[in-house]
Simulated scan of single mutants.
Amino acid sequence: MKDVIFDDFQNSVSESLLRHKSILDIITKLQESQSRINRAIAKSATNCGCIKINVEKQKVPNSYESISDLQSLIETHLKGNLCDNCRDVLEKEIGNNLFYLASLCNVLDLNLYDILLKEYDRINTLGKYSLK
Rank of each mutant, 00 (worst) to 15 (best):
C105G: 04
Q34D: 07
K29M: 13
L116Q: 09
I51K: 02
L108P: 03
I26M: 04
K59A: 06
Y64R: 06
I74D: 07
K79F: 14
T46P: 02
D88R: 14
Y100D: 02
C83Q: 01
N97E: 05
N85T: 11
I41W: 15
F99P: 00
L73Q: 13
E75R: 15
L98N: 00
C86G: 09
N38K: 05
T76Q: 06
K92F: 03
V89F: 12
S22I: 03
N106F: 00
L104M: 01
N111D: 14
L24E: 15
G49H: 11
A45P: 02
E32Q: 02
T46V: 14
I26P: 02
R36L: 12
T28W: 10
A45K: 08
N97L: 04
L24K: 13
E32F: 08
S66C: 06
Y64W: 12
L82N: 12
N111F: 11
L108D: 09
L116G: 11
G80I: 04
K43V: 13
N81G: 01
K79I: 15
D69W: 08
I26H: 06
I51V: 10
S22Q: 11
T46L: 13
V60I: 12
T76H: 10
L30F: 12
N38W: 13
R87K: 14
Y113W: 14
S63P: 02
I94H: 11
S63R: 11
G95N: 05
D109W: 02
V107I: 13
A40V: 11
C105I: 03
I74Y: 15
L116Y: 15
S44T: 01
N85V: 10
Y100G: 01
E75S: 15
K59T: 04
A42T: 10
V60E: 05
N47A: 15
S66Y: 05
K92R: 13
T76W: 07
I115T: 01
I74N: 11
D84A: 14
I41V: 14
V107Q: 06
V89R: 07
N85A: 13
N111I: 10
N38Q: 06
G95A: 12
V60R: 11
Q58W: 08
C83A: 08
E56F: 06
E93T: 00
K57N: 05
I41Q: 03
I94G: 04
L30K: 03
Q34I: 13
E32C: 07
L116R: 09
N47M: 15
L73I: 10
Q58L: 13
Y113G: 08
A102L: 00
K59M: 04
F99S: 00
D84W: 04
S63H: 12
E91P: 02
S35M: 11
N106E: 02
N38E: 02
T28L: 15
S35P: 05
K59V: 03
S33D: 03
G49F: 15
Q31V: 14
K57G: 08
D109P: 02
L70H: 03
S33V: 01
D69V: 09
T46H: 05
S66E: 10
I27W: 11
